[in-house]
Deep mutational scan, measured.
Amino acid sequence: MQIFVKTLTGKTITLEVEPSDTIENVKAKIQDKEGIPPDQQRSIFAGKQLEDGRTLSDYNIQKESTLHLVLR
Rank of each mutant, 00 (worst) to 15 (best):
L56A: 01
D32Q: 13
S43D: 08
D39E: 13
I44Q: 05
E64M: 11
K27N: 06
M1V: 03
F45S: 04
K11Q: 09
V70H: 08
I30F: 11
D58A: 04
K6G: 03
Q40Y: 09
Q31M: 13
A46W: 13
I36G: 09
D52E: 07
E51I: 09
A46N: 15
G10K: 03
G47Y: 06
L69S: 02
K11F: 09
Q41M: 15
K63M: 09
Q40C: 12
I3S: 01
L69F: 05
T22H: 01
R72N: 12
M1F: 15
L15F: 03
N60I: 01
K6P: 02
D52N: 09
E16K: 08
A46D: 12
M1I: 11
Q41S: 09
P19I: 09
L69D: 01
H68Y: 14
G47R: 02
L15R: 00
Y59F: 04
D58P: 00
K33A: 12
A28M: 14
P37D: 08
L71I: 12
I61K: 01
F45W: 14
V5R: 00
T55Y: 04
L67G: 02
R54G: 07
G10N: 06
G53Q: 10
R42Q: 14
T66P: 00
K11S: 07
D32E: 13
D39A: 10
P38F: 15
I23P: 01
R54M: 13
L56K: 01
F45Q: 04
G35T: 02
F45V: 05
R72I: 14
T12A: 03
T22E: 01
A28H: 12
D58Y: 15
M1A: 02
S43M: 15
Q40N: 10
Q62T: 13
S65G: 05
R54T: 05
V26N: 01
K11L: 10
P37Y: 09
Q41R: 04
S43Y: 15
E24P: 03
N25P: 01
P37S: 11
F45P: 01
L56I: 10
G47E: 07
D32A: 13
K29Q: 08
L50G: 02
I36L: 08
S20F: 09
V26R: 02
P37A: 12
T22A: 03
L8T: 13
E24Q: 12
K29E: 00
N60M: 07
V70F: 12
E24A: 14
L71H: 10
L69R: 00
F45A: 04
K11N: 08
T9Y: 12
R54F: 12
I44L: 14
I3L: 06
F4H: 07
I36R: 05
L71F: 08
S43Q: 14
K6R: 11
N25F: 11
D21K: 01
F45L: 05
S20R: 08
S65E: 08
K63L: 05
K33Q: 12
P37C: 08
L69M: 12
L56H: 03
E34Q: 08
I44D: 03
E16V: 12
V26A: 01
R42W: 15
